[in-house]
Amino acid sequence: MSPPEAPRSRGAYRPRSVEQRIVFLTGAGLSARTGAGVFRGPEGLWALAPEMEEAMHADRLPASLPRLWQVWGHLARLAADHGPTPGHYAIARMGAPVITQNVDGLHQRAGSGTVHELHGRAYTAVCMDPGCDWEAPLAPGEGPRAEDHGAPSQCPACGSPVRPDVVLFDEMLPEAAMREAAALARTADVLVAVGTSGIVFPAAQLAPLARAHGATTVLIDIDPPTGDFVRAAYDHVIAADAHEILPDWERTLVGGGGGRNPFLEPFG
């Protein structure tokens, strides 16, 4: 028998106090307001530019490096230019740990202290040799070469090609980040997924894991996915703009009170 349909009203859930251990799981929808867009769905990057998805397979390296630098360098540049969104700032103000599928570093820039990046970092260059630990921050730009983003094409330590530090298809997610993410899910009182489809594994296992350990699970998305998996994973599904919902929660939890709230200002 299928689980009961989860509530989908805007006011379906509200955190009750700062004593609750709230953990956030975030996806591309939270950063879409920067202009980066999302990857899946009819308006996603993979649908609009299938040749880019082809370049995201690990077995295409190193021939796919020019496309990788174009795609991920551009995304990192958008994040650097636009900065964190109201949702990022609200999460940081709540002091909650974050598990993110995003690679843009916006949670850290907003002030979040604990951020586990499951899919890597588009703002960092790394050596392609798995035995070499060279890495360096990027100065994201536009173009198909590492030099266009402030990195050398060849590793200064060993001479191997340099790539953006993002997880490609057919690559394993960072073991440490997944381990810490699972630990957070098991100990959360509330797990809130924001801007993620909730169907991409292994991140998709985190909400069911949290729920199995007694957490209340919440999904916030303007156009949330439906289906048995979502109903089984989430107690509450809120179809609304996270950049309005999260600042509202932040006011409630940390006592922002009345008056002017910078997190509700238009994001420009």
Rank of each mutant, 00 (worst) to 15 (best):
A80H: 10
P84S: 10
T85H: 05
G73V: 07
A90Y: 10
P66F: 04
R60P: 04
P62I: 00
I91P: 00
H82N: 15
T85M: 05
S64K: 02
Q70N: 13
P84I: 07
I91K: 09
A92G: 12
P84H: 10
W72F: 15
L78R: 13
P86D: 10
A90S: 12
R77A: 07
T85S: 15
L65Q: 01
V71P: 00
L68N: 05
D59Q: 13
R77M: 06
A80T: 11
T85K: 05
D81Q: 15
A90C: 10
A92C: 12
A92V: 07
G73E: 03
G73R: 08
R77K: 10
G73H: 06
L61T: 01
H82G: 13
G87L: 10
R77L: 08
G73N: 06
P62N: 02
D59S: 13
L65N: 01
P66N: 06
H82T: 15
Q70V: 11
A58L: 12
T85R: 06
V71Q: 11
G87Q: 13
G87D: 11
L65P: 00
G83K: 13
L75K: 09
R60D: 05
P62L: 04
R67N: 01
R67F: 02
R60A: 14
L61N: 02
A80F: 01
A79L: 01
Y89D: 08
R60L: 08
L61F: 06
D59T: 05
H88R: 14
H82L: 14
D59K: 10
G83F: 14
V71S: 09
L68W: 05
G83M: 13
Y89P: 00
T85C: 05
S64P: 00
Y89L: 11
A76S: 10
R67V: 14
L78S: 03
Q70G: 15
P66E: 04
P66M: 04
L61C: 03
R60W: 06
G83A: 14
G73Y: 08
T85D: 04
P66T: 04
R77P: 00
T85A: 03
H82C: 15
A92W: 09
H74S: 11
A76K: 01
A63V: 05
